[in-house]
């Protein structure tokens, strides 16, 4: 048991733990290298971001350069960064002066909150439809669902967001088009994200349910005389869940990219908004911090998805006993 447990669960997890370290180093170094060779002058950009265009002049830039030691050689600054990373110190934002870790925690909170609403919402919208469509492949529900999902996936996220704003904020005046305080502010950005994801998950759910529904053991369960509902719930769902969960991991990539767009569109103070801002302001520690956070979340969720698939797979569970 112990050995097998190690092989099945721990090893992939350990692999996934080595990966983030690699990712951290690559992302950090790449960010640093790119920032180092970017055109323009970091001190000037920082001054503009800190003091606004009107006060961001050469005198302000000189003060920034002196305060942050930006005239040190890049190699020295990079070694400094690696040294601090080892001590889990991400440094201070060059723009606000706050610790990157502290800013990241806050932004991550907003981003996770948004993702945490959008993902269940997309499952809620996509999975039941996919399930219904998959039970009768080629049926009317299936055709409508297919058409809808193809259409929805072709709409750019920004256009979708603008349409939702037009309908719900401008036409009906129900929901605010920006802000991040209460549940109302969550609806439009979360819906924009969720609709795009739902189109994909409905397709995958439909296909995997269709495969399982056509498989012999479902026919066997029916033949056993189990009622249709029990057949679907006990056997169908469980088998169909595996690709769907695997898909959830894939969706994360889409989610991360969607977040940057949606956060920019709705002025959401999350990690995507912060990343875009930091790149324009050339706030190297924040760029590295956000890139690191995104890479780590990505790796973590993939590991969790692997684990969930291993746990849920009835065949693997049978082999275990």
């Amino acid at each position: 048991m112990g050995r097998r447990f190690l092989d099945r669960f721990l090893r992939p997890v350990l692999m996934r733990l080595v990966q983030p370290l690699l990712v951290a180093l690559i992302v950090g170094a790449l960010g640093f290298a790119l920032m180092a060779v970017l055109p323009g002058d970091q001190a000037f950009r920082l001054a503009a971001a800190r003091y606004g265009p009107d006060m961001g002049d050469a005198a302000a830039a000189a003060l920034v350069r002196q305060e942050l030691g930006l005239d040190r050689p890049w190699a020295v600054q990079f070694l400094d960064w690696v040294g601090r990373l080892v001590r889990l110190d991400l440094g201070h934002s060059l723009v606000t002066g706050e610790p990157v870790l502290q800013e990241l925690t806050m932004q991550l909170g907003y981003t996770l909150a948004l993702a945490g609403v959008a993902l269940p919402l997309s499952a809620l919208l996509g999975l039941p439809l996919g399930l219904l469509a998959g039970l009768q492949p080629g049926g009317p529900v299936d055709r409508i669902m297919l058409g809808l999902s193809v259409l929805l996936r072709a709409v750019p996220a920004y256009a979708l967001g603008l349409c939702l704003v037009t309908v719900f904020s401008i036409h009906f005046g129900w929901l605010p088009p920006a802000g991040f305080e209460g549940w109302r502010e969550f609806v439009l950005p979360a819906l924009t994200l969720a609709l795009g994801l739902a189109a994909l998950s409905a397709r995958v759910a439909r296909d995997s349910v269709a495969v399982v529904a056509a498989s012999p053991f479902m026919a066997f369960a029916r033949w056993k005389g189990l009622p249709e509902r029990a057949v679907v719930l006990r056997h169908g769902l469980r088998n169909a869940a595996i690709p769907v969960i695997a898909l959830l991991g894939l969706q994360l990539v889409g989610l991360v990219e969607g977040l940057v767009i949606v956060e920019s569109l709705f002025s959401w103070p999350g990690i995507g908004h912060a990343l875009v801002h930091a790149i324009f302001a050339r706030d190297v520690p924040v760029v590295q911090g956000t890139a690191l956070a995104l890479g780590l979340i990505f790796v973590l969720v993939n590991a969790l998805v692997d684990l969930a698939c291993a746990l849920i797979d009835p065949r693997r569970a049978r082999a275990e006993t």
Binding site: S169, P176, P177
Partner: peptide
């Protein structure tokens, strides 16, 4: 004080009473 950088979003917030 809330920062909304997009002009259209600001106008919509004013119009919808937000």
């Amino acid at each position: 004080y809330l920062v909304v950088s997009q002009g259209e979003a600001r106008a919509t917030m004013a119009e919808s009473g937000h």
